[in-house]
Design a protein around this nucleic acid. Structure first.
Lengths: 366, 366
DNA sequence: GTCGTTGCTGGTAGCGCTGTCAACGTTCCT
DNA sequence: AGGAACGTTGACAGCGCTACCAGCAACGAC
């Protein structure tokens, strides 16, 4: 009776309401705010929906309510391990919620980011997760004008658009250099690739720590705009050695580069950490397994993504966090590659990096 | 005049039509099928849309047209490098098209996949990309009943739902083992982790090649359901050595494991390839940079993603491929870790794996 | 000259859902 | 007892767009 079914026999809200003996609007409320219904009707609608296998039509909902249940995510790269960890956290947090993730790739271009942002915002997303704090002026203006919660991830800075979760790359780099100082190293090179804003801030942190110690020289820094890779790590390190053959340590802007440096040392029969100490950044899984095990800066990427998405969803639903800026900090994971108190270089058991000394620091943004 | 603007001053199609002096439906046609308009109106609508900064409302479009412009993608993992390469290809191909990507993560569970599939299908996606050929019976039925194009990726098999693009993991594994035979190895171990269907087929290929040569022993195979990692590669290899100390080669189901094996060899002062040869799978970037450089099976992951998305979009728009099943093949990339004709183990130049011998094979699925 | 045929345009009527507001019954207070 | 306050429900009117079909002009074929 009533209206005829859609061609495909699709179940509409009206059918559910009819079976439950309520009006469509009451059935609608059941899905948005069940508490508003009396218990009797709630159970009636619930079982009717289940019986008919009702699935709400998201397009109709979006059109009628003038908002979507889409969370837009803008990241610079899909390939970089760092972002895949963050993404996993985001997807895990969104799973089970009503929100779906719309992912776009800025390819490290803030102009591309601006374009994608415009596209996203036009569809009135429920919320937005953007990477970093270096947007174009126009992007920044759009973000500030957007009427949805926004989380900036990967970094923290003084001027959040809305919410922010990350850590100080600057402080983390300073901690890495401080660790090398502690181990007695003085002539510490820096190897960096891609040089996106976060890598740049790691370089800044390195430079400031070196200057503080009166040890900075421009010649110790080798960088390139080329995307990072293990092979590139080896090549950059070769350049560095050609310039400064007597360096005693290398701080790498990421772990791939560090692994490349390690391999290059092996090729040249440079002992690690005997002749050269190596410190990486991110603490990817393989760092603990390399020979020698490689010191790195652990960052909480999965947790960052998960927390960002959780905070965002809460904010969308009106539960704003008491603390909109969250510093997840970092840890210096000291391993063989930078350790002067040399354990026997060949541990009996294959288990790598037996006892990692951890130095935990909340990054204090100054 | 006419109807009032939306609260936010949003530009609707009606405003564009009004400014262009045409009916809304004509303006609508401009965005869907510009060729249907006379040149005069076409340019008028075009400039009106640009002037007003019109952005179509996708929800309204989806509701009215009963279809979406969303391509659903189901992959088992976001972290695995293999899939991030595929994804990059998919996103690259979708960029610039009208279609957007909706990504979901099955976590290697076909039950989870079935659930997600049901969710996707309910929203009438324009097309679907699913990983592999091992769906539940129910998933399979849903896919077959779906009224949208579907591409299965990563593998090829005898019975495509619709389109299919990938390669034979079985043949690739056989080729890896054949390569090790050629190099004179006989006692070849297999190391595998996670054991998803594709890894399982690599194992099957290994087993069949070994049996063909009369060399198969169950004791040569070490696998675990645990997710893969470099560290795990070392641990599994240690197990293998404990069982069979006199193996002369290891075929690893992926490159992370291979790197772990390499490190474990270094820890134990086992020379590679002198005492043990190593072959990995996927040819990730670091394989060419390790010391020694590591032999692997190159698979065309980026191309696979890109081609899959391109094929899918073409099919959505009515241009079905002449060849619905595409075998992208693989290549054995021979490097130092499995080479018996020993080049000086320490090349003068740091450039790794100077001359890679490549063995290209289209995988023939039997 | 009449009849199709083609190419372009517009009117009408929803797509399935929700915002708004009014109306109802019930409870609680004074 | 009267009224306010609350909790619950429903009617109505779209959200912005497109499917469908009708209309109209221009043209060629018979």
């Amino acid at each position: 009776m009533g209206r005829k079914r859609t061609k495909s026999g699709k179940i509409r809200l009206a059918e559910v309401a009819e079976l439950a003996g309520v009006s469509p609007i009451t059935a609608s409320r059941f899905f948005r705010n069940p508490e508003a219904l009396s218990v009797a009707k709630r159970t009636r609608v619930e079982s009717a929906a289940k019986e008919l296998g009702y699935v709400p039509n998201l397009a109709a909902r979006a059109l009628a309510s003038q908002r979507t249940e889409v969370i837009g995510v803008l990241i610079p790269s899909l390939t970089n391990n760092v972002f895949s960890d963050v993404l996993r956290g985001i997807y895990d947090a969104s799973e089970g919620s009503r929100y779906s993730i719309q992912l776009s790739n800025t390819r490290y271009s803030i102009l591309q980011e601006e374009k994608l942002l415009r596209l996203f915002l036009a569809q009135k997303p429920a919320g937005l997760i953007v990477t970093g704090i270096d947007q174009t002026a126009e992007s920044r203006a759009m973000l500030e004008a957007a009427d949805c919660p926004i989380v900036q991830i990967m970094e923290i800075g003084p001027d959040p658009v809305d919410m922010m979760i990350g850590f100080s790359h600057y402080d983390a780099a300073r901690a890495a250099v401080a660790h090398l100082f502690e181990q007695g190293h003085r002539k510490i090179g820096f190897v960096g690739a891609r040089m996106d804003p976060r890598v740049q801030r790691r370089l800044d942190g390195y430079v400031s720590a070196m200057k503080d110690a009166g040890l900075f020289e421009q010649r110790l820094v080798v960088t390139t705009a080329t995307p990072t890779s293990v092979t590139l790590g080896g090549a950059l390190f070769a350049d560095l050695l050609a310039r400064e053959p007597d360096i005693d340590a290398v701080f790498c802007a990421n772990d791939d580069l560090a692994l490349g440096v390690l391999f290059e040392c092996r090729r040249r029969e440079i002992t690690v950490p005997g002749q050269i100490a190596i410190v990486g950044f991110n603490d990817l899984e393989f760092m603990a397994s390399a020979v020698p095990t490689l010191t790195s800066i652990r960052t909480n990427r999965y947790e960052m993504g998960k927390t960002a998405a959780t905070m965002l969803i809460n904010a969308i639903e009106g539960r704003r966090p008491e603390q909109p800026v969250l510093d997840l900090g970092f840890k210096v994971i000291e391993r063989q590659s930078s350790s002067t108190r040399r354990s026997d270089s060949r541990p009996a058991v294959s288990g790598a990096g037996a006892a990692n000394k951890m130095i935990a620091l909340p990054s204090s943004h100054d």
